[in-house]
Write a protein that binds this DNA or RNA. Structure first.
Length: 498
RNA sequence: GCCCCCAUCGUCUAGAGGCCUAGGACGCCACCCUUUCAAGGUGGAGAUCAGGGGUUCGAAUCCCCUUGGGGGCACCA
């Protein structure tokens, strides 16, 4: 934070794609910094690239951030909606007149000039430089055109882009993460700030807007570090006060390259749809590149806000380790009450599941879920027809090791007959378990040997939520029917004694 | 090709000259618990702190070089 002015940070996503994990993390760091130091968090939509920007993407970004629990004090609150805050508008497409005015100011001051070079000409220069092992930069051909030359270019119909005059000097800044960074801007060359068609470019608009919105701290990804010298030079030319910069490390693919759609799942919404909890994502993202310096590792958004400090952010990039996210997600799922879990599970369950059932389901699956979306497979047996469930396993699977089909058949028959004498009111996990254990004991079977075929009959799978709780949920009628199905299966294959 | 940045277990990290024969967590292995699977408990393997030079009584921690990796070099953002 700059001690001499109020802390104002900003996130400036461009709506050219769905909310990216990296954008979410940078937003989080900005949000945490603002909350930690009682500052203001601004959201600005950088939609100057009209060809690729859409309101659908803007909506995805805004909703995704809200879902994570990240809120902003100024900016659009809903896609396409009105802005909140007194430094607006907060969409760059609505600020074009300001950029034009500032560009004109630079032109008038002789700090920028029109350049009439064509893309082909620029390309040729660049290739030439590469051949000579020189840094690629604009050669300044249009920098000192005479009035006549200028007029003749315009007469030819050439559209003039506006270039900023870069004077050779060493630029340096004290980065909150990287400390002292310096750069020789003789390597820069005069860069374009406004296209030939009059539309402004990123490096120019960020500076104009960050200054106009009185941003005190620019916190962004390390991939922007080489834009910083250009921006600093613009700040100075325009007479703006410099913000403090903080370049945070990138999130990496497993191969240590910048996280990308090709190699990783990068859209936030995809994680949400798989059933990752926002709490887990926030905790996970917070620790990718930062740690409190202690051995604590479970932090809520509020706790992160209290503890987060920019100076503790690492310099090196961090791999997005999905295994770690999975672990954290499990931790957060287990920390939920049954009612909370039921509520979150709702969207992942079929409509046939009534609220009471979902609530009773919660404790059965809580310790077994990595993602909420895993619920489907776990409890499919509850929502599928009996014959469908029976089709999931073969008769052979019903046999525990060293048990004949005939034995299993008669054991299941005993179970069936015993349980059928129970009333619906008695049909509870505890009662069922004690009956089944008694049967196993009478038969002199290991309980597990009896539970295995029973589990298969009831759930259709060898792995399931706890057997008796599952039976309680399924209900007397359907349980008995499924045991009958299993018995029938044994008989049909001829492994049952009849 | 040019510029910039980074570097502790496979991964996320603790570590800001002596507390480090490098700690925690995830993952992995074993055992315990146990009706399956999980969850939980206990223990274990796993990093000569990228390598090499310095500085220092003493370096994972400071300096230099090398190597490796990454990011950026647009009339994209």
């Amino acid at each position: 934070m700059s001690a001499d002015r109020p802390l104002r940070v900003r996130m400036a996503p461009s709506p050219t794609g769905p909310l990216h994990i990296g954008t979410a993390r940078t937003s989080l760091y900005n949000y945490l910094t603002a909350r930690h130091d009682k500052g203001t968090f601004v959201l600005r939509i950088e939609d100057t690239d009209i060809a690729r920007s859409t309101t659908e993407f803007e909506r995805d970004i805004i909703e995704g951030l809200h879902w994570l629990g990240i809120s902003w004090d100024e900016g659009p609150q809903v896609a396409g909606g009105d802005d909140i805050g007194s430094f607006g508008p907060y969409r760059q497409s609505q600020r074009l007149d300001r950029y034009a005015a500032e560009a004109q100011r630079l032109l008038n001051a002789g700090l920028a000039y029109r350049c009439y070079c064509t893309p082909e000409e620029l390309d040729a220069v660049r290739r030439e430089q590469e051949r000579n092992h020189e840094p690629p930069r604009y050669n300044g051909r249009c920098r000192n055109l005479t009035a006549e030359e200028r007029a003749s270019c315009e007469k030819e119909g050439r559209q003039g882009a506006i270039r900023f005059k870069v004077e050779p000097a060493t630029v340096r800044w004290d980065d909150a993460v990287r400390r002292d960074v310096e750069f020789d801007n003789a390597l820069l060359g005069d860069f374009v700030i406004v296209r030939g068609d009059g539309s402004p470019l990123y490096n120019f608009t960020v500076v104009v807007d960050d200054a106009a919105m009185q941003i005190s701290d620019v916190i962004r990804g390390e991939d922007h570090i080489s834009n910083t010298p250009k921006q600093i030079v613009l700040y100075e030319a325009l007479g703006y006060k410099l913000p403090r910069f903080a370049h945070i490390p990138l999130i990496l693919n497993p191969d240590r390259t910048k996280m990308s759609k090709r190699k990783s799942q990068t859209s936030m919404d995809a994680y949400r749809q798989q059933g990752y909890l926002s709490e887990a994502l926030v905790n996970f993202l917070g620790f990718l590149g930062w740690s409190p310096g202690t051995e604590e590792e479970i932090f809520s958004l509020d706790e992160l806000s209290q503890r987060f400090e920019l100076d503790k952010v690492h310099k090196g990039g961090a791999i997005f380790d999905i295994g770690r996210l999975d672990h954290l997600n499990g931790v957060y799922i287990r920390s939920l009450t049954d009612a909370q879990l039921a509520l979150r599970l709702r969207p992942f369950l079929p409509d046939a599941a009534d609220d009471a059932t979902v609530l009773r389901l919660a404790p059965l699956v809580k310790e077994r879920l990595v993602r909420l979306g895993d619920i489907g497979e776990l409890v499919a047996f509850l929502f599928q027809a009996d014959d469908a469930v029976a089709s999931w396993y073969s008769a052979e699977l019903l046999l525990p090791k060293k048990r004949e089909g005939s034995e299993v058949g008669s054991a299941l028959t005993v179970v069936r007959d015993t349980l059928s004498s129970l009333t619906d009111a008695d049909w509870s996990a505890d009662v069922l378990e004690s009956h089944c254990r008694a049967i196993a004991e009478r038969l002199e079977w290991k309980p597990g040997d009896l539970f295995k075929p029973l589990r298969l009959a009831i759930t259709g799978r060898a792995v399931s939520p706890p057997l008796f709780g599952s039976m309680e949920l399924l209900g007397r009628e359907r349980c008995l029917a499924r045991i009958d199905d299993a018995l029938g299966k044994l008989q049909r294959v001829g492994v049952a004694a009849g």
